[in-house]
Amino acid sequence: MEKVAGGINASSWAGLPLSVRLFSSTIGYPLIVTQEDTMKDTDIKRLLYTNLLCIFSVFLSIFIPSFFLDNFSILETHLVWLGTCSAFVTGANLLLYLVVKPNVSSKRSSLSHKVARVVRCWLYFLASCFFLHIIFVLYGAPLMELVLETFLFAVVLSTFTTVPCLCLLGPNLKAWLRVFSRNGVTSVWENSLQITTVSSFIGAWLGAFPIPLDWERPWQVWPISCTLGATFGYVAGLVISPLWIYWNRKQLTYKNN
């Protein structure tokens, strides 16, 4: 991870599509290098607040439904919780996207462009759900039984990973691939996105380990342990990323102009 310091060189930055450059210049990181440190500090602070909001949305999804539903609990009405959790986290991300960061393509886009963009986002989200579902089945999830459970797990994991990507980077696979490669990160936000996404996946992966154990606990059933693992991973990522970035702020230089 220390290698992030290398940064991407100028020529490849020039190769970035215009939208990405515009996007990254508008989300509030410094264009003037001399101000970088102070700007970065404020950025980190904002990152911390947004992440706290996301964590808060996860907690809300645990407590809010119990006001409306009688016997709501994470384990017993797991599918309901999956749905609400997914909805809340998506909502929080959208809120952040609308409030904290100005709309990216407002300058040059018409309404149809916006609609097309939203539709593409939806398609990307659905595609990622189906892709993750297939991956789960390939990893050993049952093919015929528990299809709904598996799919909702895919939806939740997509919410933790794809939705932030869509919010931050837009439906732009190229940018996604860039963020998830060595030296590909160009801002604090992307760094945080990288960390939360990877930690969500790792959490889901680790969540599979208790399944074979003979403890006979209700949460060992597929896919509960994995969804819980993914949630913990996501929350952990949200907590860790501002701290980690703050800790390494001296080493991190996002050479972007």
Binding site: G15, R178, F180, R182, G184
Partner: peptide, 26 residues
């Protein structure tokens, strides 16, 4: 999957064909 991800992370993969108009990464 780790091997695939690592190949990508290390920049040893070309981006998919539909994205090859402008290449990114070092």
């Amino acid at each position: 999957l780790f091997l695939v991800a690592q190949l990508h992370w290390e920049g040893q993969l070309l981006p998919p064909k539909l994205l090859t108009t402008s290449r990114l990464g070092s």
